[in-house]
Every structure is written in structure tokens, then in C-alpha cells.
């Protein structure tokens, strides 16, 4: 046995390394996710991803937008948000998910990363995930796992987002563990006037504090 390596904060100066081109766009070959505005001129050295054909990803295209706030309600201006999700059919692009009866999507991986800006805002382009199994014989509602790091965060914070228009939320085994009064902090809502944009704000304190998970 070996002792687990302790976590440390990312600090504020990670953007030129950890934010890669296209990292926040899981469905297209765009540059969303990189932060040339924060990289010293001439220091954009990392190779770009190989050809991905991400524009061919199957599923309903959505955007997830939101703002992150610290425990005083001030914008969290330099967080790094990571997401992990299943494809539209409900299968994870990981050998551990070996359910051959659910198709993989060769153009979709399901991992993304976006840094918040001066307003604490972030944006991902992805697809609405399918359902995946939960504990026992349960089925989970469509959801996306969120990991939050950044300066001032010593160890990653974890949460999940669900979709307000998903009737499956009522039978989700993880949401059922969350006190009813706090469930709404995990539910992304459609932006008024935009059918494909969901808003998910993250609050580290206050009356609408986002529920965080310990896994």
C-alpha cells in the first residue's frame, strides 16, 4: 500500500497550460476553451488536438452557461471547471463501461474543461447525455458531473447538473439523496428565448448554495 498523494491548489496561473483549444466544445472543432487572452504573447506552444470529427457527434446539441460565485457571492473569476458525461445513448467513453448493447459514439469523448472569466462566467458546448445506470436496478436521470478547481480551492469540489425539463429527475437515485429544499441548486434551467441553452450557476455559499458531493 502507498499513501494517496495530497491535493494542492491550481493557483491562478494555469490557463496557458491547462486550457486547451476546443476543451470546452465537445461537439465541434472550435477553439472554445483556450485562453489566448491570458497567455503571454508568443507562448502558445502546445499542439492542438488531432482531427476529431466532433461535428458529427450524435445527439441534441446544447450549451451550458453559468456563473460561479465564492462563499460571499463575489464572482469566482479564475476557476477551472471540468465536465464528464455519457454520450447521447447513455454510454461512457471508457473501457470500464463495457455495456456493448449501448453504442459508443466514435466522435464523442465526453470530457471538457472551461475556465471562468472576470464575471465568473463559463460556457460549454456539448450534447444532452443519455441515461446511465445507478445503484442497484435504478436508472439515473440525464446528468453531467462537474469538478471545480482554482486558486483558493485546495481540493477539487464536485457537483452534478441535471436538466429542469427532464421528467426522469423524479426517479433519480442521487437526487433522491439530496434534501428536497436544496435540489434546485443542481437543476439547470433553459435560458428564456433560447431552446438549447441551459443555465447552471455555481454558488459556494448563501441561501442557494450548490450541493457538493463527496464520492
Amino acid at each position: 500500500m502507498a499513501g494517496q498523494t495530497p491535493w494542492q491548489t491550481t493557483g491562478p496561473f494555469f490557463h496557458f497550460g491547462f486550457c486547451w483549444k476546443g476543451g470546452a466544445d465537445l461537439t465541434g472543432d472550435s477553439a472554445l476553451g483556450s485562453r489566448p487572452d491570458l497567455t503571454a504573447p508568443g507562448h502558445d506552444v502546445l499542439a492542438e488536438p488531432g482531427t476529431t470529427n466532433r461535428r458529427l457527434v450524435k445527439g441534441e446539441r446544447i450549451e451550458i452557461v453559468g456563473q460561479m460565485f465564492d462563499n460571499t457571492g463575489a464572482p469566482f473569476t479564475d476557476a477551472l471547471i471540468e465536465i464528464w458525461q455519457a454520450n447521447a445513448a447513455g454510454r461512457y467513453a471508457c473501457p470500464e463501461d463495457n455495456r456493448a448493447e449501448i453504442p459508443l459514439d466514435e466522435n464523442f469523448i465526453g470530457f471538457g474543461r472551461a475556465a471562468t472569466d472576470k464575471q465568473g462566467a463559463y460556457r460549454f458546448r456539448t450534447i444532452r447525455p443519455g441515461r446511465v445506470p445507478g445503484p442497484g436496478n435504478t436508472l439515473q436521470a440525464p446528468h453531467i458531473a462537474f469538478g471545480l478547481v482554482g486558486p483558493g480551492i485546495l481540493k477539487r469540489l464536485l457537483t452534478r447538473i441535471y436538466f429542469a425539463d427532464a421528467p426522469e429527475n423524479d426517479e433519480d437515485p442521487i437526487l433522491a439523496l439530496v434534501p428536497a429544499a436544496r435540489r434546485s441548486s443542481l437543476i439547470a434551467t433553459r435560458e428564456p428565448g433560447a431552446a438549447d441553452i441551459y443555465r447552471f450557476d455555481i454558488r459556494l455559499g448563501g441561501p442557494q448554495e450548490t450541493v457538493l458531493f463527496d464520492i
Partner: peptide
């Protein structure tokens, strides 16, 4: 100011 105000909720590990 950046530590969460509340403790995290323990959940079982799922396929996610």
C-alpha cells in the same frame, strides 16, 4: 472566501 460554506454530501459511486 473560496471554501464552500457547507460540507459535501456523501453519495455512492455510480458509473459516472
Amino acid at each position: 472566501t473560496r471554501a464552500p460554506a457547507s460540507a459535501p454530501l456523501k453519495i455512492p459511486q455510480t458509473l459516472t
